[in-house]
Design a protein around this nucleic acid. Structure first.
Length: 842
RNA sequence: GGGCGAGUGGCGGAACGGCAGACGCGCCGGCCUUAGGAGCCGGUGUCGCAAGACGUGCGAGUUCGAAUCUCGCCUCGCCCACCA
């Protein structure tokens, strides 16, 4: 693929290692040959390898390279192993940054986005990944968001999309509502811009993800990183307990229902607390208490969540003057309102059991409310503190007929009795909330709904999709979506009666776009349907999905929900979007800090590619450390990897005729063994490397895979120095090294493969098979330990019998020194591994 | 405060309960060069002239044998954070 310089041709010396001479040419050839297109009709076993598509922010960051190289290696490995691999790429192109660019610079979001995509696509191409660009999806294309809207309508028809007035988290900077999982940190800031969020009441669209809370707790058959499972499980937050009705001491007042995980402690419920938002507050507050309660509720509602800086802060509350009745003790208990009870969890009302709950205890202590112990603390339990029963052995006291019963048993017994009395029963509560999808922004998929004065909210008929974004809009920095003032967009007619209607101006959360993009890759150009059922049946579920762990509870759960909902509508025949999930770590700056422009520690991949070539950058990123861990950038380290590829370059060159055997290095001619022994050792290294690298790639251990490739290249180098450069073992070693290197460093592997006269393309060549018989050595070096400490080594043939090994070990002078003439107490042998002599001293 | 994860040379990091430090960087010495660089050869955990001793955050334990398993503590990172 490259031509020799005049000097190289004249001197006959092998060419200088210069990736810029061949990398681009090979990428062009692969593209021209459609080498990486995944054909639906290919009968080979399918493999769908997916990596999270990026937001088109403008430039490819070194982090994109890090994220994409690993799945590219895996995709290429599977392909060389004879599978039909789909490895697509696209752009998550709706979202706020485009709109901000429009406001700041007066560029239309569509123009800005398209320019960024062009730029990033070109940068992606320099990576030499096997992306199938014919399948590219761009979520802001009407051809894509039409189907996002269509999916909204399917969810609406299935009762999984609904509209509700709700207090929502609002980002005052971005002027949008946020879903619960988009509010982060103790100070409750916006996931995107970091601004502290506030509460607002708004009518919004929700998806009923909570219908699938239980099913999403099951990870059966899925291979997720443990931390991700835990985060999702905690996010769903399932608690089992009981709902209990507490009658209210007031004429014709409805009872108040509470949720508790500890119904066994009900005899200790000495007061009740309502969330400030609870509807019963207004109804039950007595006249004497009204002004104080209203002031408290107003203050609580005005309070931004950031003021809850710490869970340690003093609890506050006021009594509303009314009383409920503890249904077990029949005692009246005061009803309080306090903001430590949350409106969105359980029923927004609790029975307070200060003796056995820390929060209730703190509240009771502050307001001097009665504390009644109903679970017997073990002897020695600290006094003057709440006692949280954990052990099943703890026994109820002061609990009527249940006294003496173990607490664990009482949970069921008391719940049953309450159910018999018609006062509630077992219940399950979740922390997970429904997914709020309305965004008050322009650059997103419009929600396909119109509002008729007569017929209310009506879905846009499917044949009228897409509801397209108008292009002639003003992006004044008002923070208000330009759609709200666009008369032509607003004007619609009611699908039921044809009367003038108003179009919904909110657009969808961009996480809706990404909840199904992996389906669209199967038939990205289909204009008649969201996806081709046959193609989806062929490719899905995704076999391996890779991306950042920051999506543990956002994107990942939304996509799981979509697949399950669509399955229940009969549109998909599988339960989970992906089987194997792997997360990459983060590449840090040289200073071990997060890369950022303000720190000036950003590494630009374009400059690195210009200087070292794509293969070096890829390989170095994989060599930094465990892929799921990330690590700091090391500018010297990349030189080491570049040197390695330079050595491979020279080792794999077909030398001029006659030059090959016995290149005379310092050891030239002075063989360190017979030719047969040297060749056998090289073959052993070759086959051990095949086995090791294959394992490592498959297990995402790229750093050790690269180390093994370096070891093989060192072995090849030594073999050449030792004079067996012309042997078939040498040729096999070099060819194998190139094949094993091909997934990680595709350009140099292809170039050297061609130079060695092998058939194009190395990337369609079969993956090498390790011969286990060749991979093992016939002699082994056994460490000899005395009392577990290394004292000597024995070199024996692999089949030396155990008693002979023991005899040799005991004969060792180093062992004798410690035995001092005594007989060993024991001798432990791990066959082929080590010998340990245990002395009488041990 | 709770949950999870991690602490190994000067640095990034290797190590199915079995030779700690693979591989690479850096550093030291050498070869080659007018020189520098590149390239190549050798060395490089700590202490010690050596024999050897000591070494995986700290302290215990299990084991013939622990970086690895168990318990307690310290430090760092991530997630959650009044979820009844």
């Amino acid at each position: 693929m490259t031509t020799r310089t005049a000097e190289e041709a004249r001197t006959g010396r092998s060419e200088r290692f210069d990736p810029s001479r061949y990398e681009q040419q090979w990428r062009d050839r692969w593209a021209a040959d459609d080498l990486y297109h995944a054909d639906d009709a290919d009968p080979k076993p399918k493999r769908y390898v997916l990596t999270m598509y990026p937001y088109p922010s403008g430039d490819l960051h070194i982090g994109h390279w890090y994220a994409a190289t690993a799945p590219d290696i895996v995709a290429r490995l599977h392909r060389m192993r004879g599978e039909n691999v789909m490895f697509p790429m696209g752009f998550d192109s709706f979202g706020l940054p485009a709109e901000n660019a429009a406001i700041d610079r007066g560029v239309h979001p569509a123009i800005w986005t398209a320019a960024n995509i062009d730029r990033m696509r070109a940068q992606f191409r320099t990576m030499g990944c096997m992306f199938d660009w014919e399948r590219e999806v761009v979520t802001s294309d009407p051809g894509y968001y039409r189907w996002t809207q269509w999916l909204f309508l399917q969810l609406y028809r299935a009762g999984l999309a609904y509209r509700a007035m709700a207090p929502v988290d609002w980002c005052p900077k971005d002027q949008v509502v946020l879903a619960r999982e988009q509010v982060e940190g103790a100070d409750r800031h916006c996931w995107r811009c970091g601004t502290p969020v506030i509460k607002r009441d708004l009518e919004q669209w929700f998806f009923r993800i909570t219908n699938y809370a239980d099913e999403m707790l099951s990870f059966a058959g899925l291979d997720y990183p443990e931390p991700i499972r835990l985060m999702q499980t905690n996010w769903i937050g399932r608690s089992e307990g009981a709902e209990i009705d507490f009658p209210v001491e007031a004429d014709d007042a409805a009872p108040i229902r509470v949720f508790t995980t500890r119904p066994d402690t009900i005899y200790g419920a000495t007061f009740m607390v309502l969330a400030p938002e609870h509807p019963a507050v207004a109804a039950l507050t007595t006249d004497e208490r009204r002004s104080e309660v209203e002031a408290y509720v107003a203050a609580a509602r005005r309070e931004t969540e950031i003021e809850r800086l710490s869970a340690e802060r003093e609890k506050t509350g006021v009594p509303i003057g009314a009383f409920a009745v503890n249904p077990m003790t029949q005692q009246p208990i005061p009803i309080w309102v306090a903001d430590y009870v949350l409106p969105g969890y359980g029923t927004g009302a609790i029975m307070a059991v200060p003796a056995h709950d820390e929060r209730d205890y703190a509240f009771a202590a502050r307001y001097d409310l009665p504390i009644r112990y109903v679970v017997q603390p073990p002897d020695g339990a600290p006094q003057g503190q709440p006692f949280i029963a954990h052990s099943a052995d703890e026994v109820l006291v002061d609990s009527g007929e249940f006294s003496g019963m173990p607490a664990s048993e009482a949970i069921g017994a008391i719940t049953r009795q309450l159910a018999d009395l018609g006062l509630g029963g077992p219940a399950v509560s979740y922390k997970l909330r429904d997914w709020l999808v309305s965004r008050q922004r322009y650059w997103g998929a419009p929600i396909p709904i119109v509002y008729c004065p007569e017929h209310g909210a009506q879905p846009v008929p499917e044949d009228q999709l897409p509801v397209t974004l108008p292009e002639d809009v003003d992006f004044a920095p008002t923070g208000v979506s330009p759609l709200q003032s666009h008369e032509a967009f607003l004007a619609a007619s009611c699908p039921v009666c044809g009367a003038d209607a108003r179009r919904e101006t909110d657009t969808m959360d961009t996480f809706v776009d990404s909840a199904w993009y992996f389906l669209r890759y199967c038939s990205p150009h289909d204009e008649r349907q969201a996806w081709d059922a046959e193609a989806v049946a062929r490719w899905l579920p995704v076999d391996v999905y890779t991306g950042g762990a920051e999506h543990a509870v956002l994107h990942l759960m939304y996509a799981r929900f979509f697949v399950k909902a669509l399955r229940d509508m009969g549109m998909l025949a599988f339960d989970e979007p992906w089987i194997v999930l792997r997360n990459q770590g983060q590449i840090l700056g040289e200073d071990h800090q997060r890369m950022s422009k303000s720190r000036g520690n950003v590494v630009n991949p374009d400059e690195l590619v210009a200087r070292y070539g794509s293969d070096t950058v890829r390989l170095f990123l994989m060599f930094i450390g465990p892929w799921d861990q990330g690590g700091p950038w090391n500018p010297m380290g990349i030189e080491g990897v570049h040197r390695f590829l330079g050595r491979v370059w020279h080792l794999a060159q077909p030398a001029a005729a006659g030059e090959m055997p016995g290149s005379q290095g310092p050891n030239g001619g002075q063989l360190l063994g017979t030719v047969e022994e040297l060749e056998r050792a090289l073959r052993r290294a070759t086959h051990a490397t095949i086995a090791g690298v294959t394992d490592d790639y498959g297990a995402f251990r790229f750093n050790t895979a690269v180390a093994k490739l370096m070891e093989l290249s060192n072995a090849i180098h030594r073999a050449r120095e030792a004079g067996i450069g012309g042997s078939s073992a040498y040729g096999e070693a070099v060819d194998t090294l190139l094949l094993l290197l091909a997934p990680a460093a595709p350009h140099i592997a292809e170039e050297l493969w061609a130079r060695r006269g092998r058939e194009y393309s190395i990337h369609t060549h079969a993956w090498p098979e390790a011969d286990p018989a060749l991979a093992v050595a016939d002699t082994v070096e056994l460490p000899v330990q005395v009392d577990g400490k290394l004292r000597d080594r024995l070199v024996v043939t692999r089949d030396t019998p155990a008693d002979e090994v023991e005899r040799l070990a005991l004969a060792s002078q180093h062992v004798q020194r410690y035995l001092a003439g005594r007989a060993p107490r024991r001798v432990i042998q791990v066959p082929g591994k080590l010998v340990n002599v245990v002395t009488p001293d041990a």
